[in-house]
């Protein structure tokens, strides 16, 4: 269900970027999803199909790239790949970690056309 919330937040941002760049029709959106966010790609596409209606991205396609999770132990500085249900450091078994990557949802780029311009 959180896919709908994330898509809505993404579309708000797409709308802002489109305005700033005077784009009136978005054709492609490229989104990077962190592995640790537990985003299901099919659910993202379903949410997008429904939420894009009536927005500047109504006819856009959504490309998703997943970023692998990476954490660093705050005690012994070991870097490791955490699992969603297991953040224990493999060296010292601590769980106080800093997430280095894989915990964000990042709008990488959008592609669109400006008024009076054909799609490229």
């Amino acid at each position: 269900m959180h896919e709908f919330s994330l898509i809505e937040a993404m579309l708000d941002q797409v709308d802002t970027v489109a305005r700033e760049n005077h784009l009136d029709r978005i054709t492609d959106i490229h989104l990077q999803t962190g592995e640790l966010r537990q985003v299901i790609p099919e659910m993202m596409q379903t949410a997008f199909q429904s939420a894009r209606q009536g927005t500047v991205a109504e006819q856009a396609t959504l490309a998703l790239t997943e970023e692998t999770g990476l954490a660093e132990c705050q005690f012994c500085e070991t870097r490791f790949k955490p699992m969603i249900h297991d953040f224990q450091c493999p060296s010292c078994q601590g769980t106080k970690v800093r997430i280095i990557q894989g915990n964000d949802i990042i709008l990488l780029s959008i592609n669109g056309t400006q008024k009076g311009e054909g799609a490229r």
Partner: peptide
């Protein structure tokens, strides 16, 4: 026209 954004979608909320 392609626009590189590279910004967290949760940025506005954060």
């Amino acid at each position: 026209m392609k626009v590189n954004v590279v910004k967290s979608v949760l940025k506005a909320n954060d």
